[in-house]
Amino acid sequence: MDCACSFPDTGKTLVWPNHRLCDLLKIEHPIIQAPMAGAATPELAAAVSNAGGLGSLGCASMLPDGLRTAARQLRASTERPFNLNFFVFPRPDTSDAVLTQVIDRLRPYYKELSLDEPSRRLPPIGPGFDDEKLELLLEIRPPVVSFHFGIPDAAAVAKLKEAGIVVISTATNVAEARQLADGGADAVIAQGWEAGGHRGSHAPNRPGDGVGTLALVPQVVDAVKLPVIAAGGIADGRGIAAAFALGASGVQIGTGFLSCDEAGTDGPRRALIRAATDMDTMVTDAFTGRAARARRTRFALEMEVNRAHLPDFPQMVALSAPLGEAGAKGDFAFHLYGQAAALNRELPAGELMQTLVAETGEVFEALFDRQIDACVSEVSAR
Rank of each mutant, 00 (worst) to 15 (best):
161 K>W: 06
190 A>L: 02
280 D>H: 11
96 D>R: 10
63 L>A: 13
153 D>N: 15
307 R>C: 05
53 G>L: 08
287 F>T: 13
343 L>K: 13
200 G>S: 07
258 L>Y: 12
24 L>R: 06
39 A>E: 12
88 V>R: 00
214 L>K: 04
332 F>V: 08
183 G>S: 13
122 L>Q: 07
236 D>P: 10
119 S>C: 11
239 G>I: 00
38 G>I: 09
219 Q>P: 02
291 A>I: 04
332 F>K: 00
40 A>S: 15
225 K>Q: 13
5 C>R: 14
224 V>W: 10
183 G>A: 14
151 I>Q: 01
278 D>C: 05
193 W>I: 00
99 L>K: 06
270 R>A: 01
87 F>V: 00
264 G>D: 10
92 P>S: 08
331 D>P: 01
278 D>V: 12
48 V>Q: 04
324 G>M: 07
266 D>T: 11
347 L>W: 12
29 H>N: 14
120 R>S: 15
73 Q>S: 10
331 D>S: 11
107 R>E: 15
12 K>I: 02
284 T>C: 07
261 D>V: 14
238 R>Y: 13
165 I>M: 07
206 R>K: 13
293 R>Q: 12
333 A>N: 10
224 V>C: 07
2 D>A: 10
189 I>R: 00
156 A>Q: 14
335 H>S: 14
92 P>C: 09
77 S>A: 15
13 T>K: 10
287 F>W: 14
30 P>T: 02
120 R>C: 03
43 E>C: 03
322 P>F: 05
288 T>N: 05
348 P>Y: 11
366 A>P: 02
